[in-house]
Write a protein that binds this DNA or RNA. Structure first.
Lengths: 223, 223
DNA sequence: TTTGAATTCAAACGCTCGTTTGAAAAGGAT
DNA sequence: ATCCTTTTCAAACGAGCGTTTGAATTCAAA
């Protein structure tokens, strides 16, 4: 395999990450990708066997990028208490979302998949384990009692991950009916508020208060 | 306008609600809609001027259905305290999402729009005010101090609305890596958990504790 | 320098999409 | 029954999609 081939493959993947993160798997076209990569349209089928094969490669590359680039290190998070870990988790990702780098794009792809899952992604999830899940589990476990059933654990993980999804398209806040001006100050405030709300929400798991009339009447774990 | 015309229009709108809620505006095709409505393909252009015109009509019908059918009545919610209102808000919508009626479909359409907004919907939002926004504002105000700036108010409203979006596709929880069995019991538990977390999260707005180290240390407003 | 495999490329294929067209059918008024 | 408008309908259009094809080109090994 020559040097030029590597560069074609790489630029295709790079362009695909940009396009798929902006428009999703179905919405992103091979024509747009090859044009951005300055490659021939048939190159995708030649190198990856088709659009789906390219997407699989994008998912792999994204997972790797996340593992290498993310400041969300499992060891670092393990050393923190619950609130600290949540704050780091939220702020790191909120920052990444507003950058347009690989990390932010990976998260956007992931969010596209939460609304309209492609079977490529489902197959991918069934075999590979995403580091973001392990990190979310690590954080959530700081709040949940030890004996928590797996079902509850997964609900909490799912919920924590979704808190980021919510703000994956902050442009929405700039349109009606919200009409917010999203300067850096507002984004910081958003991160603080979201962290505080997430911490308080996860703290409700401390004691099993299901079916209680006023579930908010206890909170504030002192972890 | 004859009786038959009304029925064609209505069955087109009805079919469109079903299709658009399942696949979004871009993903739903006029071929599928006309087939479900047992109408000719050109009928959409004749009656509504095109796919976009039909979608506008769907949005109108959905808003009306929501106003008429939703148990989320502004007067009823106004009489409740914060936690009660949140619980009603969450549970009502969670139930609607799992039904496949007009109300559930309206909410699914709305969620599609949060990820990939159509300009039809943006135009719609710019002119018409959605009742769900007013209800969310009403609830959020029970938790926010009186002097809260509009920016913070909108963040809280946006966040509250997103809590429902999160669970708009509960099927996701049934696939890897979650693999949950979503029987009625699990859905009830999910509603309870989500209500409790939402109440606790909104309670953090009671006092301005931005930059505080442990924002969860107070909760439970007694409105 | 020759040879054969790897890679690029322009063109075309088959499909689905939203929309247009012009004629046929249906309905209501006179 | 006639006439004119409203509504339906099958067919076709043009555009975009992912993919295939087969020839041209590039490249490294012999």
């Amino acid at each position: 395999m020559s040097r030029a081939v590597e560069s074609t493959r790489e630029s295709l993947i790079k362009a695909a990450i940009a396009v798929f993160s902006a428009k999703g798997f179905e919405g992103g076209s091979v024509r747009e990708i090859t044009q951005a990569a300055k490659a021939n349209r048939a190159a995708i089928n030649y190198h990856f066997g088709g659009k789906e094969g390219l997407y699989r490669e994008v998912l792999k590359a994204s997972v790797q990028a996340f593992a290498e680039l993310s400041p969300l290190d499992a060891d670092r998070l393990a050393a923190m208490d619950g609130p600290q870990a949540v704050q780091t988790f939220i702020r790191t990702q909120l920052k990444a979302l507003n950058r347009r780098d690989h990390l932010g794009r990976f998260m956007r792809i992931f969010t596209w998949e939460t609304l309209s899952p492609s079977h490529v992604f489902n197959d991918f999830l069934a075999t590979e384990r995403l580091p973001i899940f392990e990190i979310a589990e690590l954080i959530v476990r700081k709040f949940l009692p030890n004996g928590t059933e797996p079902g509850d654990l997964w609900i909490a993980i799912f919920w924590l991950l979704s808190q980021i999804d919510t703000f994956i398209r902050p442009e929405r806040l700039e349109r009606p009916p919200f009409n917010l001006k999203l300067d850096q100050q507002m984004i910081d405030r958003l991160g603080d508020r979201l962290s505080a709300m997430t911490i308080a929400a996860l703290s409700t798991w401390r004691a099993d208060q299901r079916h209680s009339g006023s579930p908010a009447s206890q909170a504030a774990p002192s972890l």
